[in-house]
Amino acid sequence: MRIAFMGSPDFAVPALRALHDAGHEIAAVYTQPPRPAGRGHRETPCPVHRAALDLGLEVRTPARVKRDITQHDAFAALNLDAAVVAAYGLILPKPMLDAPKRGCLNIHASLLPRWRGAAPIHAAILAGDAESGVTIMRMEEGLDTGPMLLKEATPIGPDTTVQVLHDALSEIGARLILRALAEDPPATPQPEAGVTYAAKLTKEDGRLDWSLDAAALERRVRALNPWPGTFFVHSGEQIRILAARIEPGSGTPGTLLDDTALVATGSGALRLLRLQRPGRAAMDADAFLRGFAMPRGAALD
């Protein structure tokens, strides 16, 4: 089948490789343009861009496509059977959505209609969902509103981190998109009930609000690392929390209940297990506390 692939981050790479290995004719790969990265701010291609070059595929990196008629025409000229979209990062206009014979198929990292939007993997953990999954959807102009072709669920355990869930969903998506193209399953409209939205995350979302209960804070640590990262401020420094555990305890929220990083929350307490100062290596709490004072009774912001 002649297809275009449209994606940018690590999440999309397994699907691209699976499509290539299955023998589909990938006419072009669309990705976000290279961005400055690292200390030298060198222009760096995204993960899908790098994978496409490794596979010897044509890569296109338009900065925008919504109102660029030349991009619409170039996409239509590919004469595609289908386009596969996985976390591409640009909104596709109707002329592009309608150009492939079987439309544009999206690999969405949630069980639609739950968690439409930009950050569905994080949102599922933050909300304490028991499961997440992947939906293959035929795209339309609305935000993740298109009819569904296939779904597959996977559990979210009490220790599941966003990276673990991300990797599991990425592999499920690669498997499901092959099925969708091979089987051409009937499309099912999304139900109107149960719609939720996962907003785009910002760095400030990582600042912990100690008035929340310990369970909600522990989920934030699992959901928001490595990006945007969870943190608090103490002694003028922004300290990242990379791992934490719920424990019994009570006190004024944000107050240290002992000398080994047990913090009172709105309900219960949170044991900080792994921490990182700016510009330093991440450390387990016992090693961290030997070089950075966090005494009992101190308040964390």
Rank of each mutant, 00 (worst) to 15 (best):
H49L: 07
A22Y: 10
A99P: 09
R114P: 08
T145F: 07
P113H: 08
L19M: 01
T160L: 11
G297N: 11
I246R: 14
D258Q: 11
A86P: 07
T161D: 12
I177N: 03
P45E: 07
A282V: 10
A83T: 09
V195I: 14
A261V: 04
A193W: 06
R138G: 07
M148H: 09
E141R: 11
P191D: 04
R39I: 03
S250P: 09
V13K: 01
Q163E: 15
H234F: 10
G251C: 08
G249T: 05
H41R: 15
T260Y: 11
I136N: 02
D258E: 14
S132K: 00
A123L: 00
G251V: 04
L97T: 07
A285N: 10
Q238H: 13
I3T: 05
A77G: 13
R60N: 08
H24R: 04
I107E: 00
A27P: 08
E204G: 08
G117Y: 09
L105P: 02
A109I: 01
T230E: 09
P62I: 00
A198Q: 07
L181H: 00
L90Y: 04
H122A: 12
L57K: 01
K151V: 07
R240L: 14
P36H: 07
L53F: 09
A82S: 15
S132V: 02
G128N: 06
L111E: 06
A214I: 13
K94N: 14
A28P: 00
A18P: 03
S250V: 13
S132G: 02
V29L: 03
Q190I: 00
L181N: 01
V48R: 02
A18L: 13
R2I: 09
P185C: 12
T202K: 06
T252I: 10
T255C: 04
G229D: 01
L257S: 09
H234Q: 04
V134D: 01
H41M: 15
L150P: 01
A281R: 15
M283F: 15
E58G: 03
R102P: 02
D286V: 11
R102E: 03
L57P: 07
P120Y: 05
A244T: 13
R240H: 15
G297Y: 10
A77P: 03
L16R: 02
L270T: 02
T196W: 07
D286G: 02
P147I: 03
L256T: 00
A15D: 06
L57G: 06
I3H: 00
T202D: 03
A298T: 03
G146W: 05
D258V: 03
P278C: 14
K101H: 14
A269R: 05
L212V: 02
A182K: 11
I125Q: 08
L165T: 02
I241W: 00
H49E: 12
C104W: 00
F288A: 04
T255Y: 00
A199I: 12
L208V: 05
A216M: 07
L273I: 15
M139L: 11
V162M: 14
E131P: 06
D54L: 01
E152F: 08
T44D: 12
K94E: 13
P100Q: 04
L217C: 06
L275E: 08
A51S: 11
L80H: 05
I241E: 01
I177P: 00
A76E: 14
R280N: 13
A198Y: 04
R280S: 15
A269E: 05
L176D: 02
Y197R: 11
H166D: 10
A198G: 08
V48M: 05
A119F: 04
A127G: 15
C104S: 05
W115P: 07
G266M: 09
